[in-house]
Write a protein that binds this DNA or RNA. Structure first.
Length: 680
DNA sequence: GCGATCAGAT
DNA sequence: CACATCTGATCGC
């Protein structure tokens, strides 16, 4: 849970993800994503009132976040005050004090955060230096190195402060299986179940929250079954998501919810009320997405755990693991790091202590060496400055090689003065304080929540509708391959019209996929981006020790698994209670059914999962990132292409290209910027 | 009666 | 576990 106060030291005139108290005085607002704990005060009457009398105060967010936010009528009053900014598109924003007229310019760039649809980080550049607010994020190792706008002149920008999501910034959470690994594990479980009969259905126990869409869309693509959800109106302008969801209950994969869903489940009914025809009971398994983590040296990583006769937990995390955070921060190497989250059981000082080694001052300048970047980027220092735990041997020291960006940098930017912009010289205190090695099977509920205020659903009683599962067997071939036409709901679906209607509004739908990049198709160990990072920890291990597997086959350290396997087939009647946490044994009978089926790895990486970098790389070939887009109040529909003229912030003029270039060079060089707009 | 806050539940 | 938020109770305006 975010405990970020809303304001950054460097830029106190803006507020991010907090809208109450002091933040009421902000000149501009920023919303990183649509989770409630980042929206405190956003619908408060005081803020509402302030907006009413303000001409210049805006809320900046991604197009998808804007869409999701405005979907909720309670935030409707923001409509005329929201400005959607495209990802990876630097935008100049003038922060105007409406009383004094004083003005401050900043350049804001949204970076994908991988937390939920629309989630972004905010990179702020201005007179007070460059700072990064991450919001909540999940970025795999190496992803930061591909973020173009964190670089300048071929190097990482000189970042003063990072306000970072520290949800799992605890060595206990050293590793969380990759998104793709988790997805694969879940797919396998789902496949093995639903393949058995049309009456074998899967229920995902997801709480109301954005962030599971990635799971749903991939499941839908893989199995040709749309996911049944309670409400999907918020995605009406995002056909890429919408076409994988349905409000028609006749499907084998459900993520619907009901206040008493556990009760339903016990009666072999789904939360939506579906039962099988003719009294034939549905065969339901429930899968609860949860965050599972593993200690530093824990090699095994089962991503699916059986917790009862018909209940499972599957690994799923919206937040970066400790090692991912470490990778992220050590790459950026900011002067200051401020935690946005204090994990329970820890204190602020606690977290700061953990973060300290990643701050620049704790790296030893001058003695910097670099890792090869064919793999990754991390800089390394000869001596560990601070606490040099004796665990260095855990990691393999690599040859020193100059850092190189994997993708071409923004070109033609002047080389920056060396003392201003430093290479990633943050030595990553390789070993931090990693005494705690967690056991397998650590997991917590992984339930973020969004803001949909519990759309009252009256359908609880329609439970008596005649279910018909017959069509499922026929349609199992996969009906929505390309997602272009929304797959047609079953005949007789009441929601059909609604769905079709909303599915094609075509008016510049927000590009949700741009904000939620999946892990690379490559497996973790195969990914070149990961290899470098992992190598330090994996060098002593097997080739792919951390590739989590469902039904992990005979593994050297799987003794505990086999010992528990006797529990597995035991149909504990109380399948939904905690029971024993049981790791699935390799011989699980389910697995036999489809064990050898190999999935096409490409499926998990449809278009939508490409990183923004790739998408935008072409447009950047012109040499540099400037001029930044300049924001204007009229551009509230700015989801469209940004390749056109944009007027500037309210009561400011369109900046001249020359000026902007100049400004940006100065920013990049860390020089002070003197505003000569004369509009004070 | 609404909002803010907290405990408890999920 | 440790998430994020919903519900309900209480308090203050």
């Amino acid at each position: 849970m975010s405990s970020f106060g809303g304001r950054m030291k460097e830029y106190p005139n803006i507020s991010l993800d907090r809208f109450d108290r002091d933040n009421l005085h902000a000149r501009a607002y920023f919303l990183s994503h649509c989770h409630k704990d980042h929206m405190k005060g956003l619908k408060g009457p005081l803020l509402k009132r302030k907006l009413k009398f303000s001409l210049t105060v805006k809320l900046y967010c991604s197009p998808v976040t804007k869409e999701l936010l405005l979907n909720n009528p309670k935030y409707g009053f923001w409509e005329d005050h929201i400005v959607a900014l495209e990802v990876d598109n630097p935008t100049q924003i003038s922060l105007v004090d409406e009383i004094t007229g004083e003005k401050e310019d900043i350049v804001v760039t949204l970076l994908p955060a991988g937390h939920c649809p629309g989630s972004v980080m905010f990179l702020i550049e201005g007179n007070q230096g460059t700072v990064l607010y991450t919001g909540d994020f999940r970025l795999a190792k190496g992803e930061v190195a591909r973020m173009e706008f964190l670089h300048s002149g071929g190097r990482v920008k000189d970042i003063q402060s990072v306000y970072v999501d520290t949800t799992f910034c605890d060595p206990s959470f050293f590793q969380i299986p990759s998104r793709e690994a988790c997805l694969n594990g879940i797919m396998e479980l789902v496949r093995d179940w639903i393949i058995q009969s049309p009456y074998h259905v899967v229920w995902f126990n997801c709480k109301a929250a954005y962030g599971y869409e990635y799971l749903f869309t991939n499941l839908s693509e893989e199995f040709g079954r749309q996911i049944h959800v309670k409400n999907m109106d918020m995605f009406r302008r995002m056909p890429e998501i919408l076409c994988h969801l349905t409000t028609d209950r006749m499907t084998q994969i459900h993520a619907c919810r009901h206040p008493k869903d556990e009760e339903f489940l016990r009666g072999s009914r789904l939360p939506c009320g579906s039962t099988a025809p003719n009294g034939t009971p549905l065969n339901i398994i429930s899968i609860k997405p949860s965050t599972m983590w593993f200690g530093e040296r824990t090699r095994k990583a089962n991503v699916v755990v059986k917790t009862g006769a018909s209940s499972y937990r599957a690994c799923f995390s919206f937040h970066s693991s400790y090692s991912e955070i470490e990778d992220f921060l050590s790459y950026i190497c900011p002067v200051n790091i401020y935690p946005n989250v204090i994990p329970l059981g820890r204190t602020l000082d606690n977290v700061k202590e953990i973060l300290k080694p990643l701050c620049r001052e704790h790296s030893r300048r001058g003695a910097i060496t670099y890792k090869p970047l064919g793999t990754l980027k991390r800089a390394k220092v000869e001596n560990t400055s601070v606490d040099s735990d004796s665990e260095d041997e855990l990691f393999e020291m690599e040859e020193v090689t100059p850092w190189r960006r994997k993708k071409p940098p923004p070109k033609r930017l002047k080389p920056l003065s060396p003392e201003k912009t430093e290479p990633p010289n943050c030595q990553e205190d390789l070993c931090l304080q990693l005494h705690t090695v967690q056991q397998n099977g650590n997991y917590i509920d992984c339930t973020e929540s969004n803001d949909d205020d519990e759309e009252e659903e009256e359908e609880g009683e329609s439970a008596t509708e005649k279910p018909c599962f017959d069509h499922l067997t026929k349609s199992s071939g996969g009906q929505n391959p390309a997602c272009s036409p929304p797959s047609e709901p079953a005949e007789g679906s009441v929601d059909q019209h609604k769905m079709v209607d909303v599915a094609c509004p075509e008016s510049e739908p927000p590009k949700w996929e741009a904000f939620f990049t999946a892990d690379p198709v490559l497996t973790d160990e195969g990914s070149e981006l990961e290899s470098s990072q992992n190598s330090r920890a994996l060098s002593a291990e097997r080739p792919s020790p951390w590739s989590p597997n469902l039904f992990s086959d005979s593994d050297d350290d799987s003794t505990h698994i086999s010992s528990q396997s006797t529990h597995v087939s035991d149909p504990g009647t109380d399948g939904l209670s905690q029971v024993d946490t049981v790791l699935l044994p390799p011989e699980e009978k389910i697995a036999e059914l489809q064990r050898n089926q190999q999935r096409d790895p490409h499926k998990a990486n449809h278009e939508g999962n490409h990183n923004n970098w790739d998408r935008d790389a072409g447009s950047l070939e012109d040499g540099n990132n400037f001029p930044p887009q300049t924001i204007s109040p009229e551009k509230s529909e700015s989801q469209m292409s940004s390749d056109f003229e944009i007027s500037s912030t309210p009561d400011s003029q369109v900046p001249k290209t020359e000026d902007l270039k100049d400004l940006y060079k100065k920013l990049a060089a860390g020089e002070a910027i003197v505003l000569n707009r004369g509009s004070q």
